[in-house]
Simulated assay, not measured.
Amino acid sequence: MATEHVLVGAAAKIPVNSSSPIISFTPVIVPSPGRPAELRLRVTAPASGDALPIILLSHGHGPSNWLSSLQGYAPLAEFYAKHGFVVIQPTHLSSRTLGLQGSQGNEMYWRSRPEDMIQILDQLDRVETTVPGLKGRLDRSKVAGIGHSFGGFTMSLLLGATNTDPRDGTVFRPFEPRIKAGVLFGPTGNGGADMSENGRKILPFYGLDFGTMNTPTLTIGGEDDVGPHLTIRGADWHWDSYTHGPGSKDLLRVKGGHHGFGGISGWDAKETEDESPEMLSMVQRMLLAYLRTQLYEGDKSWQQASEVLTELKQLGSIERKS
């Protein structure tokens, strides 16, 4: 691709389908009675084509001023739109751009984040009619979810995981069966004894259990993604969605990966500790291959990409279970 960075290096060996021009439209405003701020979306889509699969993209809760909103994650949204997906990004209420504070029991608006995604699916007619040229072009039977960091927690809940608030035992499981496959970048892991003392203060509601998360999921874990502010464990804490999730699960271990995965949250983002066009291109391509295989019966993209990656051990490795 002429638009790719010249430094993508060996990741260029991982095959992708051809790319096409894209459009980005924002804001799409979804009616949300009672929500402290209106639900605003960015929609990035191929400029042409029909029967387009859908990606819901949940942003993280990082230190940046803008990236944790619909303004961020262009490296993901643009790439997947170029390769045939309609990518829908909300600004969750936890975004620093809104300056809101969640109430006790809904700290960081952790409950409203999955509700945002469900609202989007309920309002796809409005999304289609608001974005010029999109009406009638969505394939609603092919919906995938991507989440990064705290967005990984959000997406884990939608994929079927259960959160039990350790303070009062309240169980929350907003499982969304319309999402057929998920991809989690550095998601939060198990709660309980695996949390650090500081982690329990930051996330007092946190008691995640992946034992009910049956939806096919790819977890992308950085081998150097260590977070003592949240957990007493090492980088493998971020892989618990793979280790403890039942059913079809895959793990992409990223060599040298920290929490930014080469720069998924924004171009040249200061908060990315592992800035790398090669790493970014690798995770972009592997994720694309995974979703194509999960959403299209008989598609061999994941198998082909995984075989190529076995020869690129300096970039990462794949584990899988069924």
Rank of each mutant, 00 (worst) to 15 (best):
H5L: 09
L7R: 12
S18Q: 09
S19M: 06
P21Y: 10
V28T: 13
G34P: 11
E38N: 14
L41T: 14
L41N: 13
L52G: 04
I55K: 02
L56W: 10
G62I: 01
W66F: 07
L67G: 07
S68H: 02
Y73T: 07
Y73D: 07
A77C: 08
Y80W: 15
A81V: 01
V86W: 01
P90F: 05
S94C: 05
S95H: 13
L100V: 12
G105V: 07
E107F: 05
R111I: 04
S112D: 15
E115R: 10
M117S: 08
I120F: 06
L121D: 02
T129W: 03
T129P: 00
V131D: 00
L134P: 06
G136A: 04
R137F: 07
A144F: 05
F153H: 03
L159R: 00
F172A: 03
F172E: 06
R178I: 07
I179Y: 08
K180Y: 01
F185Y: 15
T188E: 11
N190Q: 12
E197G: 15
P204N: 13
Y206D: 00
L208F: 04
D209W: 02
F210I: 04
T212L: 12
T215K: 01
T217K: 05
I220Q: 09
V226F: 13
W239Q: 08
W239P: 03
W239S: 03
S241D: 01
H244T: 11
P246D: 04
L252F: 14
H259M: 06
D268V: 10
K270Y: 13
S276M: 11
L288H: 12
A289L: 07
Y290G: 07
L291Q: 05
L295R: 11
D299E: 09
A305I: 09
T310L: 11
E311C: 01
I318D: 05
K321W: 03
